[in-house]
Design a binder for these strands. Sequence first.
DNA 1: GTCTATATTTGGATAGAC
DNA 2: GTCTATCCAAATATAGAC
Lengths: 261, 261
Amino acid sequence: MIDTPSSIPRGHGQTVPSGGGAVSRDRSAHGKPRTRPVAKDPHGAKSSRTRERILDAAAHVLSRKGYAGTRLGDIADQAQLQAPAIYYYFRSREELIEEVMWTGAQRVRQHVGQALDALPAETAPMDRICAAVEAHLRIELELSDFATALIRNSGQVPEDLRTRQLAEEAEYGKLWRDLFRDLDDAGELRPELDLRIAHMLVVGALNWAAEWWNPRRGSFETVVRTAQSLVRHGLSGRSHLAEPPRPGVIHGQRHPARRTP
Amino acid sequence: MIDTPSSIPRGHGQTVPSGGGAVSRDRSAHGKPRTRPVAKDPHGAKSSRTRERILDAAAHVLSRKGYAGTRLGDIADQAQLQAPAIYYYFRSREELIEEVMWTGAQRVRQHVGQALDALPAETAPMDRICAAVEAHLRIELELSDFATALIRNSGQVPEDLRTRQLAEEAEYGKLWRDLFRDLDDAGELRPELDLRIAHMLVVGALNWAAEWWNPRRGSFETVVRTAQSLVRHGLSGRSHLAEPPRPGVIHGQRHPARRTP
DNA sequence: GTCTATATTTGGATAGAC
DNA sequence: GTCTATCCAAATATAGAC
Protein backbone atom coordinates (compact mmCIF):
# COMPACT_ATOMS: atom_id res chain seq x y z
CA MET A 1 0.00 0.00 0.00
CA ILE A 2 1.58 3.20 -1.05
CA ASP A 3 -0.02 5.26 1.62
CA THR A 4 0.84 2.93 4.42
CA PRO A 5 3.06 4.94 6.68
CA SER A 6 5.58 2.50 8.19
CA SER A 7 7.77 5.38 9.14
CA ILE A 8 8.37 6.80 5.68
CA PRO A 9 5.86 9.46 4.79
CA ARG A 10 6.10 9.89 1.07
CA GLY A 11 3.85 12.73 0.08
CA HIS A 12 1.14 10.30 -0.90
CA GLY A 13 0.19 9.80 -4.53
CA GLN A 14 -3.42 10.76 -4.96
CA THR A 15 -4.00 14.00 -3.18
CA VAL A 16 -7.31 15.44 -2.30
CA PRO A 17 -8.67 18.02 -4.76
CA SER A 18 -8.79 20.70 -2.12
CA GLY A 19 -5.02 20.58 -2.44
CA GLY A 20 -2.29 21.01 0.13
CA GLY A 21 -2.80 18.42 2.77
CA ALA A 22 -4.46 20.41 5.51
CA VAL A 23 -7.92 19.60 4.30
CA SER A 24 -10.24 20.36 7.17
CA ARG A 25 -13.08 21.41 4.87
CA ASP A 26 -14.78 24.20 6.75
CA ARG A 27 -18.09 22.59 7.46
CA SER A 28 -20.15 25.19 9.23
CA ALA A 29 -21.76 23.11 11.99
CA HIS A 30 -18.98 21.16 13.64
CA GLY A 31 -19.25 21.40 17.37
CA LYS A 32 -17.84 24.54 18.93
CA PRO A 33 -15.93 27.17 17.03
CA ARG A 34 -12.27 26.27 16.97
CA THR A 35 -10.36 27.85 19.79
CA ARG A 36 -6.96 26.68 18.64
CA PRO A 37 -5.30 27.19 15.26
CA VAL A 38 -5.52 23.52 14.16
CA ALA A 39 -2.30 24.08 12.29
CA LYS A 40 -3.08 24.02 8.60
CA ASP A 41 0.42 23.31 7.48
CA PRO A 42 1.74 26.45 9.17
CA HIS A 43 4.72 27.30 6.99
CA GLY A 44 3.37 27.03 3.48
CA ALA A 45 4.45 23.66 2.21
CA LYS A 46 7.01 21.40 3.75
CA SER A 47 6.84 22.25 7.43
CA SER A 48 4.77 19.65 9.09
CA ARG A 49 4.72 16.26 7.51
CA THR A 50 3.59 15.19 10.96
CA ARG A 51 0.00 15.88 10.15
CA GLU A 52 0.19 13.46 7.22
CA ARG A 53 1.90 10.90 9.39
CA ILE A 54 -0.96 11.09 11.85
CA LEU A 55 -3.54 10.76 9.11
CA ASP A 56 -1.75 7.79 7.61
CA ALA A 57 -1.47 6.18 11.01
CA ALA A 58 -5.13 6.79 11.73
CA ALA A 59 -6.13 5.25 8.39
CA HIS A 60 -3.98 2.26 9.19
CA VAL A 61 -5.47 1.68 12.62
CA LEU A 62 -9.02 2.50 11.57
CA SER A 63 -8.95 0.05 8.69
CA ARG A 64 -7.91 -2.73 11.03
CA LYS A 65 -9.54 -2.05 14.39
CA GLY A 66 -12.77 -0.41 13.34
CA TYR A 67 -14.29 2.84 14.45
CA ALA A 68 -14.91 2.14 18.10
CA GLY A 69 -11.70 0.17 18.43
CA THR A 70 -9.47 2.94 17.17
CA ARG A 71 -7.48 4.40 20.07
CA LEU A 72 -5.53 7.60 19.93
CA GLY A 73 -2.74 5.74 21.65
CA ASP A 74 -2.50 3.25 18.82
CA ILE A 75 -2.52 6.01 16.27
CA ALA A 76 0.21 7.81 18.20
CA ASP A 77 2.35 4.67 18.35
CA GLN A 78 1.98 4.15 14.65
CA ALA A 79 2.82 7.79 13.95
CA GLN A 80 5.75 7.70 16.36
CA LEU A 81 4.70 10.41 18.74
CA GLN A 82 2.69 10.80 21.93
CA ALA A 83 -1.07 10.96 21.91
CA PRO A 84 -1.46 14.57 23.06
CA ALA A 85 0.54 15.73 20.05
CA ILE A 86 -2.40 14.76 17.90
CA TYR A 87 -4.38 17.57 19.43
CA TYR A 88 -2.05 20.09 17.94
CA TYR A 89 -3.35 19.06 14.50
CA PHE A 90 -6.86 17.84 15.18
CA ARG A 91 -9.46 19.14 17.55
CA SER A 92 -10.73 15.71 18.51
CA ARG A 93 -10.58 12.03 17.77
CA GLU A 94 -13.82 12.36 15.84
CA GLU A 95 -12.47 15.06 13.61
CA LEU A 96 -9.36 13.03 12.82
CA ILE A 97 -11.38 9.95 11.99
CA GLU A 98 -13.80 11.95 9.93
CA GLU A 99 -10.99 13.36 7.87
CA VAL A 100 -9.63 9.88 7.26
CA MET A 101 -13.00 8.69 6.02
CA TRP A 102 -13.46 11.76 3.89
CA THR A 103 -10.03 11.34 2.35
CA GLY A 104 -10.81 7.72 1.65
CA ALA A 105 -13.97 8.65 -0.18
CA GLN A 106 -12.12 11.28 -2.20
CA ARG A 107 -9.35 8.95 -3.21
CA VAL A 108 -11.59 6.12 -4.26
CA ARG A 109 -13.78 8.36 -6.30
CA GLN A 110 -10.87 10.17 -7.86
CA HIS A 111 -8.95 7.02 -8.68
CA VAL A 112 -11.88 5.28 -10.33
CA GLY A 113 -13.03 8.48 -11.99
CA GLN A 114 -9.64 9.07 -13.56
CA ALA A 115 -9.45 5.50 -14.78
CA LEU A 116 -12.75 5.99 -16.56
CA ASP A 117 -11.80 9.36 -17.98
CA ALA A 118 -8.67 7.82 -19.44
CA LEU A 119 -10.72 5.46 -21.60
CA PRO A 120 -11.39 6.28 -25.23
CA ALA A 121 -14.76 7.94 -25.70
CA GLU A 122 -16.09 5.04 -27.72
CA THR A 123 -15.41 2.43 -25.04
CA ALA A 124 -18.35 0.05 -24.66
CA PRO A 125 -20.37 0.24 -21.42
CA MET A 126 -19.28 -3.22 -20.30
CA ASP A 127 -15.65 -2.38 -20.85
CA ARG A 128 -16.07 0.74 -18.79
CA ILE A 129 -17.50 -1.33 -15.97
CA CYS A 130 -14.54 -3.67 -16.17
CA ALA A 131 -12.18 -0.73 -15.97
CA ALA A 132 -14.03 0.51 -12.90
CA VAL A 133 -13.78 -2.94 -11.34
CA GLU A 134 -10.03 -2.91 -11.73
CA ALA A 135 -9.62 0.63 -10.47
CA HIS A 136 -11.81 0.01 -7.44
CA LEU A 137 -9.90 -3.14 -6.53
CA ARG A 138 -6.58 -1.44 -6.99
CA ILE A 139 -7.24 1.54 -4.77
CA GLU A 140 -8.82 -0.76 -2.21
CA LEU A 141 -6.29 -3.58 -2.14
CA GLU A 142 -3.03 -2.08 -3.26
CA LEU A 143 -3.05 1.62 -2.78
CA SER A 144 -4.89 2.96 0.15
CA ASP A 145 -5.50 2.31 3.81
CA PHE A 146 -7.82 5.29 3.54
CA ALA A 147 -9.98 3.35 1.11
CA THR A 148 -10.24 0.31 3.37
CA ALA A 149 -10.79 2.52 6.40
CA LEU A 150 -13.76 4.00 4.58
CA ILE A 151 -15.12 0.73 3.25
CA ARG A 152 -14.94 -1.17 6.47
CA ASN A 153 -16.27 1.56 8.71
CA SER A 154 -18.94 3.47 6.90
CA GLY A 155 -21.45 1.09 8.42
CA GLN A 156 -20.26 1.47 12.01
CA VAL A 157 -19.57 5.13 12.32
CA PRO A 158 -21.91 7.15 14.58
CA GLU A 159 -25.01 8.74 13.16
CA ASP A 160 -23.88 12.34 12.72
CA LEU A 161 -20.58 11.47 11.11
CA ARG A 162 -22.44 9.06 8.87
CA THR A 163 -24.87 11.62 7.56
CA ARG A 164 -22.10 14.09 6.82
CA GLN A 165 -20.33 11.34 4.93
CA LEU A 166 -23.31 10.45 2.80
CA ALA A 167 -23.02 13.33 0.36
CA GLU A 168 -19.50 12.34 -0.54
CA GLU A 169 -20.33 8.68 -0.94
CA ALA A 170 -23.42 9.49 -2.98
CA GLU A 171 -21.13 10.94 -5.63
CA TYR A 172 -19.34 7.68 -5.96
CA GLY A 173 -22.59 5.80 -5.96
CA LYS A 174 -23.72 7.95 -8.86
CA LEU A 175 -20.60 7.10 -10.82
CA TRP A 176 -21.43 3.41 -10.62
CA ARG A 177 -25.11 3.98 -11.14
CA ASP A 178 -24.30 5.72 -14.39
CA LEU A 179 -22.11 2.87 -15.50
CA PHE A 180 -24.91 0.42 -14.91
CA ARG A 181 -27.49 2.66 -16.53
CA ASP A 182 -25.38 2.97 -19.65
CA LEU A 183 -25.12 -0.78 -19.80
CA ASP A 184 -28.84 -1.11 -19.41
CA ASP A 185 -29.53 1.60 -21.97
CA ALA A 186 -27.36 -0.24 -24.43
CA GLY A 187 -29.55 -3.27 -23.87
CA GLU A 188 -26.69 -5.29 -22.53
CA LEU A 189 -27.99 -5.98 -19.07
CA ARG A 190 -29.75 -9.30 -18.76
CA PRO A 191 -33.42 -8.46 -18.28
CA GLU A 192 -34.05 -10.62 -15.22
CA LEU A 193 -31.51 -8.59 -13.27
CA ASP A 194 -32.65 -5.77 -11.05
CA LEU A 195 -30.45 -2.85 -12.02
CA ARG A 196 -29.83 -1.39 -8.59
CA ILE A 197 -29.49 -4.68 -6.80
CA ALA A 198 -27.03 -6.00 -9.36
CA HIS A 199 -25.10 -2.78 -8.85
CA MET A 200 -24.93 -3.27 -5.09
CA LEU A 201 -24.00 -6.93 -5.38
CA VAL A 202 -21.14 -6.18 -7.75
CA VAL A 203 -19.70 -3.36 -5.68
CA GLY A 204 -20.23 -5.49 -2.59
CA ALA A 205 -18.15 -8.32 -4.02
CA LEU A 206 -15.37 -5.81 -4.59
CA ASN A 207 -15.68 -4.19 -1.18
CA TRP A 208 -15.64 -7.49 0.61
CA ALA A 209 -12.31 -8.31 -0.99
CA ALA A 210 -10.76 -6.07 1.65
CA GLU A 211 -11.84 -8.66 4.22
CA TRP A 212 -10.06 -11.62 2.72
CA TRP A 213 -7.52 -10.72 0.09
CA ASN A 214 -3.80 -10.78 0.62
CA PRO A 215 -1.13 -11.69 -1.88
CA ARG A 216 -1.05 -15.27 -0.62
CA ARG A 217 -4.63 -15.71 -1.80
CA GLY A 218 -3.53 -15.19 -5.37
CA SER A 219 -1.99 -12.37 -7.31
CA PHE A 220 -3.76 -9.08 -7.54
CA GLU A 221 -4.00 -9.55 -11.30
CA THR A 222 -5.83 -12.83 -10.83
CA VAL A 223 -8.34 -11.17 -8.57
CA VAL A 224 -8.95 -8.46 -11.14
CA ARG A 225 -9.25 -10.91 -14.00
CA THR A 226 -11.63 -13.16 -12.11
CA ALA A 227 -13.75 -10.29 -10.89
CA GLN A 228 -14.00 -8.80 -14.35
CA SER A 229 -14.98 -12.09 -15.90
CA LEU A 230 -17.54 -12.75 -13.20
CA VAL A 231 -19.06 -9.32 -13.61
CA ARG A 232 -18.97 -9.29 -17.39
CA HIS A 233 -20.67 -12.62 -17.81
CA GLY A 234 -22.86 -12.12 -14.80
CA LEU A 235 -24.38 -8.95 -16.17
CA SER A 236 -24.28 -9.43 -19.90
CA GLY A 237 -27.45 -10.21 -21.74
CA ARG A 238 -25.43 -10.99 -24.83
CA SER A 239 -23.94 -14.11 -23.23
CA HIS A 240 -20.69 -13.16 -24.97
CA LEU A 241 -21.81 -14.71 -28.20
CA ALA A 242 -23.47 -12.56 -30.80
CA GLU A 243 -27.06 -12.52 -29.64
CA PRO A 244 -29.80 -10.26 -30.89
CA PRO A 245 -30.46 -7.28 -28.56
CA ARG A 246 -33.16 -8.17 -26.11
CA PRO A 247 -36.73 -7.70 -27.25
CA GLY A 248 -38.60 -4.56 -26.27
CA VAL A 249 -35.58 -2.33 -26.55
CA ILE A 250 -35.19 -0.46 -29.77
CA HIS A 251 -31.59 -0.71 -30.71
CA GLY A 252 -30.49 -0.77 -27.12
CA GLN A 253 -30.93 2.92 -26.48
CA ARG A 254 -33.68 4.21 -24.24
CA HIS A 255 -32.04 7.47 -23.25
CA PRO A 256 -29.40 9.34 -25.17
CA ALA A 257 -26.06 7.87 -24.27
CA ARG A 258 -24.33 10.17 -21.86
CA ARG A 259 -20.57 10.01 -21.61
CA THR A 260 -18.57 11.96 -19.11
CA PRO A 261 -20.87 14.86 -18.23
CA MET B 1 -35.66 -11.05 11.71
CA ILE B 2 -37.04 -13.88 13.67
CA ASP B 3 -34.35 -13.81 16.28
CA THR B 4 -34.47 -10.10 16.79
CA PRO B 5 -35.55 -9.61 20.37
CA SER B 6 -37.52 -6.32 20.33
CA SER B 7 -39.00 -7.14 23.69
CA ILE B 8 -40.78 -10.36 22.66
CA PRO B 9 -38.50 -13.33 23.09
CA ARG B 10 -40.06 -16.06 21.02
CA GLY B 11 -37.97 -19.16 21.44
CA HIS B 12 -36.18 -18.52 18.15
CA GLY B 13 -36.53 -20.88 15.25
CA GLN B 14 -33.20 -22.37 14.32
CA THR B 15 -31.52 -23.59 17.42
CA VAL B 16 -27.94 -24.58 17.78
CA PRO B 17 -27.18 -28.27 17.32
CA SER B 18 -25.76 -28.60 20.79
CA GLY B 19 -29.39 -28.21 21.81
CA GLY B 20 -30.87 -26.53 24.84
CA GLY B 21 -29.75 -22.99 24.73
CA ALA B 22 -27.03 -22.95 27.32
CA VAL B 23 -24.30 -23.61 24.85
CA SER B 24 -21.05 -22.64 26.51
CA ARG B 25 -19.01 -25.29 24.72
CA ASP B 26 -16.44 -26.41 27.22
CA ARG B 27 -13.35 -25.25 25.50
CA SER B 28 -10.45 -26.26 27.70
CA ALA B 29 -8.29 -23.14 27.52
CA HIS B 30 -10.55 -20.23 28.30
CA GLY B 31 -8.90 -17.95 30.81
CA LYS B 32 -9.30 -19.01 34.43
CA PRO B 33 -11.44 -21.88 35.59
CA ARG B 34 -14.95 -20.66 36.21
CA THR B 35 -15.54 -19.63 39.78
CA ARG B 36 -19.25 -19.09 39.42
CA PRO B 37 -21.87 -21.54 38.12
CA VAL B 38 -22.59 -19.56 34.91
CA ALA B 39 -26.14 -20.85 35.10
CA LYS B 40 -26.61 -23.41 32.38
CA ASP B 41 -30.36 -23.17 32.36
CA PRO B 42 -30.53 -24.09 36.03
CA HIS B 43 -33.92 -25.82 36.19
CA GLY B 44 -33.83 -28.18 33.27
CA ALA B 45 -35.75 -26.50 30.50
CA LYS B 46 -37.93 -23.46 30.78
CA SER B 47 -36.47 -21.58 33.72
CA SER B 48 -34.32 -18.86 32.41
CA ARG B 49 -35.31 -17.42 29.08
CA THR B 50 -33.25 -14.50 30.28
CA ARG B 51 -30.08 -16.00 29.00
CA GLU B 52 -31.56 -16.19 25.52
CA ARG B 53 -32.80 -12.61 25.82
CA ILE B 54 -29.28 -11.48 26.64
CA LEU B 55 -27.82 -13.41 23.73
CA ASP B 56 -30.41 -12.02 21.34
CA ALA B 57 -29.76 -8.54 22.62
CA ALA B 58 -26.03 -8.97 22.28
CA ALA B 59 -26.41 -10.21 18.70
CA HIS B 60 -28.56 -7.20 17.94
CA VAL B 61 -26.12 -4.69 19.34
CA LEU B 62 -23.04 -6.44 18.00
CA SER B 63 -24.40 -6.58 14.48
CA ARG B 64 -24.96 -2.84 14.53
CA LYS B 65 -22.23 -1.31 16.67
CA GLY B 66 -19.33 -3.63 15.96
CA TYR B 67 -17.10 -5.46 18.39
CA ALA B 68 -15.41 -2.59 20.16
CA GLY B 69 -18.58 -0.50 20.11
CA THR B 70 -20.71 -3.08 21.86
CA ARG B 71 -21.39 -1.95 25.43
CA LEU B 72 -22.83 -4.14 28.13
CA GLY B 73 -25.11 -1.25 28.96
CA ASP B 74 -26.63 -1.29 25.49
CA ILE B 75 -27.09 -5.04 25.64
CA ALA B 76 -28.73 -4.70 29.03
CA ASP B 77 -31.11 -2.02 27.74
CA GLN B 78 -32.07 -4.18 24.81
CA ALA B 79 -32.59 -7.19 27.06
CA GLN B 80 -34.53 -5.13 29.58
CA LEU B 81 -32.38 -5.62 32.60
CA GLN B 82 -29.40 -4.03 34.31
CA ALA B 83 -25.88 -4.65 33.14
CA PRO B 84 -24.65 -6.56 36.22
CA ALA B 85 -27.34 -9.17 35.67
CA ILE B 86 -25.44 -10.29 32.61
CA TYR B 87 -22.69 -11.58 34.85
CA TYR B 88 -25.01 -14.11 36.32
CA TYR B 89 -25.06 -15.85 32.92
CA PHE B 90 -21.73 -14.96 31.39
CA ARG B 91 -18.35 -14.63 32.94
CA SER B 92 -17.31 -11.66 30.88
CA ARG B 93 -18.23 -9.42 27.99
CA GLU B 94 -15.81 -11.30 25.84
CA GLU B 95 -17.39 -14.67 26.60
CA LEU B 96 -20.83 -13.35 25.76
CA ILE B 97 -19.66 -11.91 22.47
CA GLU B 98 -17.82 -15.07 21.62
CA GLU B 99 -20.93 -17.12 22.15
CA VAL B 100 -22.88 -14.80 19.86
CA MET B 101 -20.32 -15.20 17.11
CA TRP B 102 -20.17 -18.92 17.59
CA THR B 103 -23.94 -19.20 17.46
CA GLY B 104 -23.95 -17.12 14.29
CA ALA B 105 -21.49 -19.46 12.65
CA GLN B 106 -23.53 -22.47 13.68
CA ARG B 107 -26.78 -21.09 12.39
CA VAL B 108 -25.44 -20.01 9.05
CA ARG B 109 -23.79 -23.32 8.45
CA GLN B 110 -26.79 -25.27 9.61
CA HIS B 111 -29.27 -23.26 7.60
CA VAL B 112 -27.34 -23.49 4.36
CA GLY B 113 -26.38 -27.08 5.00
CA GLN B 114 -29.98 -28.11 5.51
CA ALA B 115 -31.07 -26.29 2.37
CA LEU B 116 -28.53 -28.29 0.40
CA ASP B 117 -29.44 -31.57 2.04
CA ALA B 118 -33.05 -31.00 1.09
CA LEU B 119 -32.20 -31.00 -2.61
CA PRO B 120 -32.67 -34.13 -4.70
CA ALA B 121 -29.47 -36.09 -5.03
CA GLU B 122 -29.30 -35.52 -8.77
CA THR B 123 -29.40 -31.72 -8.50
CA ALA B 124 -26.86 -30.11 -10.81
CA PRO B 125 -23.86 -28.35 -9.23
CA MET B 126 -24.97 -24.92 -10.42
CA ASP B 127 -28.43 -25.42 -9.00
CA ARG B 128 -26.90 -26.38 -5.70
CA ILE B 129 -24.91 -23.19 -5.70
CA CYS B 130 -28.04 -21.19 -6.38
CA ALA B 131 -29.77 -22.89 -3.49
CA ALA B 132 -26.85 -22.01 -1.25
CA VAL B 133 -27.02 -18.40 -2.43
CA GLU B 134 -30.66 -18.19 -1.42
CA ALA B 135 -30.12 -19.87 1.92
CA HIS B 136 -27.14 -17.69 2.78
CA LEU B 137 -29.04 -14.54 1.93
CA ARG B 138 -32.06 -15.63 3.89
CA ILE B 139 -30.27 -16.43 7.12
CA GLU B 140 -28.26 -13.24 6.75
CA LEU B 141 -30.97 -10.80 5.77
CA GLU B 142 -34.18 -12.19 7.11
CA LEU B 143 -33.51 -14.59 9.90
CA SER B 144 -30.63 -13.86 12.14
CA ASP B 145 -28.91 -11.04 13.91
CA PHE B 146 -26.43 -13.70 14.93
CA ALA B 147 -25.49 -14.18 11.31
CA THR B 148 -24.92 -10.48 10.69
CA ALA B 149 -23.09 -10.15 13.99
CA LEU B 150 -20.74 -12.83 12.77
CA ILE B 151 -20.36 -11.52 9.25
CA ARG B 152 -19.71 -7.93 10.18
CA ASN B 153 -17.36 -8.62 13.05
CA SER B 154 -15.20 -11.58 12.22
CA GLY B 155 -12.67 -9.14 10.80
CA GLN B 156 -12.53 -6.86 13.84
CA VAL B 157 -12.56 -9.25 16.73
CA PRO B 158 -9.35 -9.53 18.80
CA GLU B 159 -6.73 -12.05 17.85
CA ASP B 160 -7.43 -14.84 20.35
CA LEU B 161 -11.17 -14.85 19.83
CA ARG B 162 -10.53 -14.83 16.11
CA THR B 163 -8.33 -17.90 16.11
CA ARG B 164 -10.83 -19.83 18.21
CA GLN B 165 -13.49 -18.84 15.70
CA LEU B 166 -11.55 -20.01 12.69
CA ALA B 167 -12.26 -23.72 13.11
CA GLU B 168 -15.97 -23.14 13.03
CA GLU B 169 -15.83 -20.83 10.04
CA ALA B 170 -13.54 -23.20 8.18
CA GLU B 171 -16.35 -25.74 8.16
CA TYR B 172 -18.60 -23.32 6.34
CA GLY B 173 -15.83 -22.40 3.97
CA LYS B 174 -15.44 -26.06 3.14
CA LEU B 175 -19.12 -26.32 2.32
CA TRP B 176 -18.79 -23.60 -0.30
CA ARG B 177 -15.48 -24.86 -1.51
CA ASP B 178 -17.07 -28.22 -2.24
CA LEU B 179 -19.88 -26.56 -4.14
CA PHE B 180 -17.39 -24.77 -6.33
CA ARG B 181 -15.25 -27.80 -6.79
CA ASP B 182 -18.22 -29.85 -7.94
CA LEU B 183 -19.02 -27.17 -10.45
CA ASP B 184 -15.47 -27.17 -11.68
CA ASP B 185 -15.33 -30.96 -11.78
CA ALA B 186 -18.43 -30.96 -13.92
CA GLY B 187 -16.61 -28.68 -16.31
CA GLU B 188 -19.12 -25.91 -15.82
CA LEU B 189 -16.80 -23.27 -14.41
CA ARG B 190 -15.53 -20.87 -17.00
CA PRO B 191 -11.82 -21.66 -17.36
CA GLU B 192 -10.50 -18.12 -17.00
CA LEU B 193 -11.93 -17.96 -13.48
CA ASP B 194 -9.74 -18.71 -10.50
CA LEU B 195 -11.72 -21.19 -8.45
CA ARG B 196 -10.92 -19.87 -5.00
CA ILE B 197 -11.10 -16.24 -5.90
CA ALA B 198 -14.44 -16.64 -7.63
CA HIS B 199 -15.62 -18.40 -4.51
CA MET B 200 -14.58 -15.50 -2.29
CA LEU B 201 -16.05 -12.89 -4.60
CA VAL B 202 -19.40 -14.64 -4.71
CA VAL B 203 -19.65 -15.13 -0.97
CA GLY B 204 -18.43 -11.58 -0.53
CA ALA B 205 -21.22 -10.18 -2.66
CA LEU B 206 -23.66 -12.01 -0.41
CA ASN B 207 -21.99 -10.97 2.83
CA TRP B 208 -21.88 -7.35 1.83
CA ALA B 209 -25.64 -7.37 1.33
CA ALA B 210 -25.89 -7.03 5.11
CA GLU B 211 -24.35 -3.57 4.71
CA TRP B 212 -26.94 -2.18 2.35
CA TRP B 213 -30.07 -4.23 2.07
CA ASN B 214 -33.35 -3.32 3.63
CA PRO B 215 -36.82 -3.97 2.28
CA ARG B 216 -36.95 -0.49 0.74
CA ARG B 217 -34.07 -1.44 -1.54
CA GLY B 218 -36.22 -4.06 -3.21
CA SER B 219 -37.92 -7.22 -2.07
CA PHE B 220 -35.91 -10.03 -0.64
CA GLU B 221 -37.03 -12.22 -3.52
CA THR B 222 -35.61 -9.75 -6.01
CA VAL B 223 -32.27 -9.81 -4.25
CA VAL B 224 -32.21 -13.58 -4.36
CA ARG B 225 -33.23 -13.74 -7.99
CA THR B 226 -30.68 -11.14 -9.05
CA ALA B 227 -27.90 -12.72 -7.04
CA GLN B 228 -28.63 -16.17 -8.42
CA SER B 229 -28.70 -14.91 -11.98
CA LEU B 230 -25.48 -12.98 -11.49
CA VAL B 231 -23.74 -15.97 -10.00
CA ARG B 232 -25.11 -18.51 -12.44
CA HIS B 233 -24.11 -16.57 -15.52
CA GLY B 234 -21.00 -15.21 -13.93
CA LEU B 235 -19.60 -18.67 -13.25
CA SER B 236 -21.02 -20.79 -16.00
CA GLY B 237 -18.79 -21.88 -18.81
CA ARG B 238 -21.80 -23.12 -20.68
CA SER B 239 -23.08 -19.60 -21.23
CA HIS B 240 -26.55 -21.01 -20.63
CA LEU B 241 -26.85 -22.20 -24.17
CA ALA B 242 -25.90 -25.73 -24.99
CA GLU B 243 -22.18 -25.47 -25.46
CA PRO B 244 -19.71 -28.31 -25.70
CA PRO B 245 -17.86 -28.97 -22.44
CA ARG B 246 -14.67 -27.02 -22.29
CA PRO B 247 -11.69 -28.54 -24.04
CA GLY B 248 -9.18 -30.44 -21.98
CA VAL B 249 -11.76 -31.89 -19.65
CA ILE B 250 -12.96 -35.34 -20.40
CA HIS B 251 -16.69 -35.30 -19.98
CA GLY B 252 -16.48 -32.72 -17.25
CA GLN B 253 -15.37 -35.07 -14.49
CA ARG B 254 -11.89 -35.00 -13.08
CA HIS B 255 -12.64 -36.47 -9.68
CA PRO B 256 -15.53 -38.73 -8.81
CA ALA B 257 -18.53 -36.56 -8.04
CA ARG B 258 -18.97 -36.43 -4.31
CA ARG B 259 -22.37 -35.61 -2.91
CA THR B 260 -22.99 -35.10 0.76
CA PRO B 261 -20.17 -37.03 2.38
C1' DG C 1 -31.97 -13.87 39.94
C1' DT C 2 -31.70 -9.09 39.77
C1' DC C 3 -30.75 -4.92 41.67
C1' DT C 4 -27.86 -0.66 43.77
C1' DA C 5 -23.73 0.77 45.03
C1' DT C 6 -18.82 0.92 44.07
C1' DA C 7 -14.04 -0.42 42.86
C1' DT C 8 -10.96 -0.42 38.86
C1' DT C 9 -9.29 0.45 34.37
C1' DT C 10 -9.03 2.70 30.25
C1' DG C 11 -8.92 6.23 27.08
C1' DG C 12 -10.13 10.99 25.45
C1' DA C 13 -8.87 15.50 26.42
C1' DT C 14 -6.49 19.66 28.76
C1' DA C 15 -2.61 22.26 31.30
C1' DG C 16 1.54 23.75 31.19
C1' DA C 17 6.70 22.80 31.03
C1' DC C 18 10.27 22.70 27.64
C1' DG D 1 5.64 21.41 18.26
C1' DT D 2 5.96 17.81 21.42
C1' DC D 3 6.20 16.11 25.83
C1' DT D 4 4.72 14.78 31.01
C1' DA D 5 1.31 15.04 34.30
C1' DT D 6 -3.27 15.04 35.19
C1' DC D 7 -8.30 15.41 34.96
C1' DC D 8 -12.56 13.35 33.79
C1' DA D 9 -16.04 10.45 31.73
C1' DA D 10 -17.16 6.01 30.39
C1' DA D 11 -17.37 1.10 30.81
C1' DT D 12 -16.18 -3.53 32.81
C1' DA D 13 -16.54 -6.01 36.69
C1' DT D 14 -17.44 -7.07 41.75
C1' DA D 15 -19.81 -6.82 46.45
C1' DG D 16 -23.54 -7.45 48.73
C1' DA D 17 -28.54 -6.20 49.75
C1' DC D 18 -33.09 -7.80 48.57
